[in-house]
Simulated assay, not measured.
Amino acid sequence: MPKRIKILAASYLLFATGFAQADSQPVRIATEGAYPPYNYVTPDGGLAGFDVDIANALCAEMNLQCTLVKQDWDGIIPGLLAKKYDAIVASMAITPERQRKVAFTAKYEGGYSMLFGRTELVDSSPRALHGKTIAVQKGSIQEKFAKAYYEKQGVRVQRYPDTQTALMDLTAQRVDAVVLEVATIHEALKDHSLSGYHSFGEKYNDPAYFGNGSAIALRKEDQALLNRFNQALRAILANGTYKRINDKYFTYNQYE
């Protein structure tokens, strides 16, 4: 065998071996576990939701063994960069600030945000809410938006570790409204304790705050894994798997 062919063959064997070894290691995927219907903890302590089903479908498509890790939202990117896990599937919006830290796949969902509060509230403008208090999840795109749009115009903004705690304070009348993603509003309305509340005002989806859809986040150096996620995402969108998962949780197309 000519020397050049031997070198190429050896290189291919090394690549194939490394690829097989990589495939034998579980891919660790983080999600928040506190953002229903996207991700939440089940009564038996497991993780479930739209994000979890999407993650499992992608891993099956890639023929990879995956493990799910629960991680609080405000530490989810630092945990990725510290290599506590390999990817984040947690409805994370693609924003310029986050793109400076992590790499994103193509989007796997869209959406928008609105205010959710008592039924007598109908105007979401800062002028109408002057002196009132709105709740947001700490570290979220909703927090950044509320700080720029509301807080600077006399509306108090209260930060919470997760949306569920914010909704509890809404029912306790400690806050007047919560800035929520549309699917979270749909989920909240299933709770009888929130029957006297509704979404109101404008739909917020300014890319400067809310990004251009949500995607899977990975470390920038993990381009090979990112490419595999993108390939698998295209596959589940084309073969109907995405739609089946979508329809399990939503009455509309979450991808748009």
Rank of each mutant, 00 (worst) to 15 (best):
D44N: 14
E109T: 10
D162Y: 06
V27R: 01
A20T: 15
C59R: 03
D191L: 05
L47G: 09
R28H: 14
D162F: 12
R244E: 15
A146W: 01
A183E: 11
S214R: 05
Q173V: 04
N230F: 01
E187K: 03
D74N: 13
D72A: 13
E202T: 02
I245V: 13
A9W: 01
T184Y: 00
T133F: 13
E151R: 02
R244I: 08
V52E: 04
Y197C: 10
I216T: 08
Q158P: 05
A57C: 11
A135Q: 07
A103W: 05
I236P: 04
A60L: 13
G196T: 10
Q231P: 02
N239G: 02
D23Q: 15
N227M: 06
L129N: 08
H186R: 03
T133W: 14
Y108W: 07
R234H: 11
M92L: 15
D23W: 02
R28C: 10
L218H: 05
D23L: 03
K107I: 09
V179I: 13
A48C: 11
N212G: 14
F50Q: 12
F50P: 12
C59N: 08
K147Q: 07
F229C: 12
T119E: 11
P126N: 10
Q25D: 07
Y150P: 07
Q231K: 15
Y112M: 06
E181P: 03
P36H: 06
R244T: 15
